[in-house]
Protein backbone atom coordinates (compact mmCIF):
# COMPACT_ATOMS: atom_id res chain seq x y z
CA UNK A 1 0.00 0.00 0.00
CA UNK A 2 2.84 2.37 0.83
CA UNK A 3 4.41 1.75 -2.56
CA UNK A 4 1.16 2.39 -4.34
CA UNK A 5 0.62 5.59 -2.37
CA UNK A 6 3.97 6.89 -3.62
CA UNK A 7 2.94 6.03 -7.17
CA UNK A 8 -0.32 7.89 -6.86
CA UNK A 9 1.49 10.91 -5.48
CA UNK A 10 3.81 10.72 -8.44
CA UNK A 11 0.79 10.78 -10.74
CA UNK A 12 -0.69 13.72 -8.87
CA UNK A 13 2.55 15.66 -9.02
CA UNK A 14 2.90 14.98 -12.72
CA UNK A 15 -0.66 16.15 -13.31
CA UNK A 16 -0.22 19.33 -11.25
CA UNK A 17 2.97 20.11 -13.14
CA UNK A 18 1.34 19.84 -16.55
CA UNK A 19 -1.71 21.79 -15.42
CA UNK A 20 0.49 24.64 -14.19
CA UNK A 21 2.88 24.49 -17.13
CA UNK A 22 0.12 24.87 -19.70
CA UNK A 23 -1.24 28.01 -18.04
CA UNK A 24 1.97 29.84 -18.87
CA UNK A 25 0.96 29.84 -22.54
CA UNK A 26 -1.88 32.32 -22.03
CA UNK A 27 0.07 35.32 -20.63
CA UNK A 28 2.94 34.51 -22.99
CA UNK A 29 0.50 34.81 -25.88
CA UNK A 30 -0.33 38.32 -24.69
CA UNK A 31 3.37 39.18 -24.65
CA UNK A 32 3.74 37.88 -28.20
CA UNK A 33 0.56 39.21 -29.79
CA UNK A 34 -0.34 42.12 -27.50
CA UNK A 35 -3.99 41.16 -27.46
CA UNK A 36 -6.26 39.63 -24.86
CA UNK A 37 -8.54 38.31 -27.61
CA UNK A 38 -5.84 35.88 -28.69
CA UNK A 39 -5.80 34.38 -25.20
CA UNK A 40 -9.52 33.65 -25.30
CA UNK A 41 -9.23 31.99 -28.70
CA UNK A 42 -6.31 29.91 -27.43
CA UNK A 43 -8.55 28.85 -24.54
CA UNK A 44 -11.19 27.76 -27.05
CA UNK A 45 -8.51 25.78 -28.88
CA UNK A 46 -7.51 24.16 -25.60
CA UNK A 47 -11.11 23.04 -25.10
CA UNK A 48 -11.05 21.37 -28.51
CA UNK A 49 -7.74 19.75 -27.58
CA UNK A 50 -9.33 18.40 -24.39
CA UNK A 51 -11.90 16.70 -26.57
CA UNK A 52 -9.28 15.25 -28.92
CA UNK A 53 -7.21 13.86 -26.07
CA UNK A 54 -10.09 12.45 -24.06
CA UNK A 55 -12.57 11.08 -26.57
CA UNK A 56 -12.18 7.41 -27.41
CA UNK A 57 -12.19 7.40 -31.21
CA UNK A 58 -11.13 3.78 -31.71
CA UNK A 59 -13.79 2.05 -29.74
CA UNK A 60 -17.54 2.10 -30.00
CA UNK A 61 -17.67 1.72 -26.25
CA UNK A 62 -19.24 4.50 -24.28
CA UNK A 63 -16.22 4.95 -22.03
CA UNK A 64 -13.91 7.82 -22.83
CA UNK A 65 -10.21 7.07 -22.84
CA UNK A 66 -9.08 9.68 -20.38
CA UNK A 67 -11.84 11.35 -18.44
CA UNK A 68 -10.38 13.71 -15.92
CA UNK A 69 -11.66 11.82 -12.95
CA UNK A 70 -8.51 12.43 -11.00
CA UNK A 71 -8.66 16.18 -10.97
Amino acid sequence: MIKRKKQVHYNQTRREFFLALAKIVAPLAFVLFGSLDVIIYIGAGAAVAMFLFSFNFRSQQKVATYPANNQ
Binding site: V8, R14, L19, A26, G43, Q71
Partner: peptide, 25 residues
Amino acid sequence: EIKKPYRDVKRDFFHLSLGLFSGVA
Protein backbone atom coordinates in the same frame (compact mmCIF):
# COMPACT_ATOMS: atom_id res chain seq x y z
CA GLU B 1 -6.60 5.24 -8.28
CA ILE B 2 -4.24 4.41 -11.08
CA LYS B 3 -2.26 1.37 -10.04
CA LYS B 4 1.13 2.51 -11.30
CA PRO B 5 2.80 5.72 -12.43
CA TYR B 6 1.62 6.69 -15.86
CA ARG B 7 3.87 7.98 -18.57
CA ASP B 8 1.27 8.43 -21.25
CA VAL B 9 1.74 11.18 -23.79
CA LYS B 10 -1.95 11.41 -24.59
CA ARG B 11 -2.85 11.79 -20.94
CA ASP B 12 -0.18 14.43 -20.46
CA PHE B 13 -1.51 16.36 -23.43
CA PHE B 14 -4.99 16.14 -21.97
CA HIS B 15 -3.76 17.73 -18.74
CA LEU B 16 -1.85 20.39 -20.70
CA SER B 17 -5.09 21.23 -22.52
CA LEU B 18 -7.06 21.18 -19.29
CA GLY B 19 -4.56 23.47 -17.55
CA LEU B 20 -4.54 25.95 -20.41
CA PHE B 21 -8.32 25.98 -20.69
CA SER B 22 -8.97 26.33 -16.95
CA GLY B 23 -6.43 29.14 -16.67
CA VAL B 24 -8.04 31.06 -19.51
CA ALA B 25 -11.63 30.34 -18.55
